[in-house]
Design a protein around this nucleic acid. Structure first.
Length: 554
RNA sequence: GCGCCCAUGGCUCAGCUGGAUAGAGCGUCGGACUACGAAUCCGAAGGUCGAAGGUUCGAAUCCUUCUGGGCGUACCA
């Protein structure tokens, strides 16, 4: 609806230009908004005020010209008013509203989808945790946000690929192998001190036991240097397997797991650095190579090859992003923990040096999570093996509640995650509020069917019978859904969806409590059943986009 | 020191590229189940939007300074 009105306004202004009523100028972004007050109409625009400065005229006068030029061919407008300093308020004809429900019914599970992305090939990279231990709660938020951004982009017509970058080439992998090695020895009863820089977690012990069970005495014969590479690979593969399982239980499936090691094959990184050096982005200082990231606005230059001749993580990351673009992605979205924000200018420098424009990359920062249990902070440390794993959270609070909790806040703001609160199946836990609305609708449909009212379709009902104010509010809310998804896709802000669903559920619950859907009046019952059905469709689609289930009963 | 992020009722947060009287949820207080699910609904109290300046018809939103908190500032990843 907003779009329709924006179109009408655009045409009207063009007409005013042609007639010379307004001085021609660049069109501002036409913003149509929902006024807080009903008295201000169904929709409103500040267009006339936006134009006032360039036109150097009274905004109310401009508004008059615009309104005169409006060509409401479809006949959707009941009236249009000028208010306050120059707002244009639109009142939509009551009959027109309910015709909007036709789309909902016909598109059904596709309602909310769009072709905004036009099939653009786009990649969302997220989680990308080192396979040195199981995923923990700290990874969970970024995981859900990345997944939902991918889902939103998918329904918005993008060709989306979800990717997990495995940092399996750094020295923390060697640390992993050493950790298992020393654990093996302590398990054999050797009285050695377990190194404090190794991973202390119980999962290391489990891995060591597993290896002893498999290999038995064969282990004894191998030297430390032989053993560690084997242990490293074994542990990494096994941990990664566990990570995949946990993610799947959390509703997340990746299209691609990309190994950092692969980048080094065929001297890929070496050649990249050579090219960059020829292009003048790299200079030498002793035996280290520096990338001139300051040319692109970074605060200092960055090392790409260390004094010992090994490339840095940053060097590999440039190669990795180059690889992404070579695979045909025209846009890449990286979901990073907020503690990596200092890395952003460097990354942008990197992609520009390989010839990409800045808008080929979006970085979404996800703030860290404060984990609480009944209001008391829970301390975590990966190295010490003290953390709440993702698996534990899924088992304890459930996939739906966990996901919903992570999605309710702007990713850029800090989030308190209270395990006890998330677990509570009560009105303190918002996810049940919306799921309950969906279950309630399903229940109404079952009851109606029992009483001889099959689920109606658009053509079978007289929507003119829906005359209540609350019904009008419901239809309006339903109509907002596609715009909302588009906005979320444009801004990469999933949190808007939970807020929307909550509002819709609230309007529905309120309507339900005040009015009976199923009554003795057959025509009215059918009309209301239809309305409620469309609410159910939107709830289900919206929850689906969050990866949260929409239960028929609960 | 420098850089990024955050600051909105008792608590947790929205506020849609500046718009009309700042909104939810939780908590508190008071009400509603012999008809479709009370995990629901209705009502009330509660805010000088961290502070001070500035920009303009108009600021929670933009600019400057300050205060408080988080993070970063590696030849780690």
């Amino acid at each position: 609806m907003k779009k329709k009105l924006a179109q009408l306004l655009k045409k009207a202004i063009t007409l005013c230009f042609e007639k010379g009523l307004l001085t021609e100028c660049a069109l501002p972004f036409i913003e149509v908004e929902l006024p807080r007050e009903n008295a201000h109409g169904d929709y409103a625009t500040n267009l006339a005020m936006m134009l006032a400065s360039t036109q150097k005229r009274n905004p109310r006068k401009i508004a008059e010209h615009i309104i005169d030029a409006l060509d409401d061919a479809e006949g959707i407008l009941e009236s249009v008013e000028i208010a306050g300093p120059g707002f244009i308020n639109f009142f939509i004809k009551k009959e027109f509203w309910t015709t909007l429900l036709k789309d909902v019914d016909e598109l059904a599970e596709r309602y909310g989808a769009s072709t905004l992305g036009q099939g653009e090939k786009i990649q969302v990279e997220f989680v990308s945790a080192n396979p040195t231990g199981p995923l923990h709660i700290g990874h969970a938020r970024g995981a859900v946000i990345g997944d939902v951004i991918a889902r939103i982009l998918e329904v918005s017509g993008y060709n989306v690929s979800r990717e997990y970058y495995i940092n399996d080439a750094g020295n923390q992998m060697n640390m992993l192998g050493r950790s298992v090695y020393y654990r093996l020895r302590t398990l054999r009863g050797e009285t050695i001190e377990f190194p404090s820089d190794c991973y202390q977690g119980e999962y290391i012990t489990d891995l060591a036991k597993e290896i002893i069970h498999m290999q038995g005495d064969a282990l004894q014969e191998k030297s430390k240097d032989e053993l560690i590479p084997f242990l490293t690979d074994y542990a990494a593969a096994s941990i990664l397997e566990g990570i995949k399982e946990d993610l799947q239980a959390f509703g997340i499936v990746f299209d691609c797991y990309f190994s950092e090691k692969k980048l080094y094959k065929d001297k890929g990184i070496a050649r990249l650095l050579e090219n960059l050096q020829q292009a003048g982005f790299i200079y030498k200082e002793g035996s280290t190579l520096w990338f001139r990231t300051t040319d692109f606005g970074d605060e200092k230059d960055r090392v790409v090859v260390r004094e010992n001749g090994e490339p840095t993580y940053f060097a590999a990351d440039i190669g990795y992003h180059k690889n992404k673009y070579e695979r045909g992605f025209t846009k890449v979205i990286d979901i990073w923990g907020a503690d990596h924000h200092g890395y952003i200018p460097r990354m942008y420098a990197g992609i520009q040096a390989i010839g990409k424009s800045k808008n080929a990359l979006d970085v979404v920062l996800v703030q860290l999570v404060n984990l609480l249990r009944d209001g008391v902070p829970v301390a975590m440390s990966t190295r010490a093996g003290e953390f709440v794993t993702l698996r534990e959270v899924i088992d304890e609070v459930g996939k739906d509640a966990a996901r919903y909790n992570f999605l309710m806040r702007r990713s850029n703001s800090h989030l308190d995650f209270d395990l006890e609160l998330a677990k509570r199946q009560s009105n303190e836990n918002p996810v049940y509020y919306v799921q309950y609305a969906h279950a309630r609708i399903a229940s109404i449909m079952r009851m109606a069917e029992e009483r001889g009212y099959p689920v109606p379709s658009y053509g079978e009902v007289d929507l003119g019978l829906l005359t209540l104010e609350e019904e009008h509010t419901l239809v309006k809310a339903i109509d907002q859904f596609p715009e909302l998804i588009e906005a979320s896709a444009r801004t990469l802000e999933p949190h808007r969806i939970p807020f929307y669903i909550n509002d819709l559920a609230s309007v529905f619950h309120s309507y339900y409590n005040k009015n009976r859907v199923i009554s003795d009046d057959g025509a009215l019952t059918t009309a209301r059943l239809f309305l409620v059905k469309t609410v159910g469709i939107v709830l289900k689609n919206a929850l689906g986009m969050l990866g949260v289930s929409a239960p028929e009963r609960m």
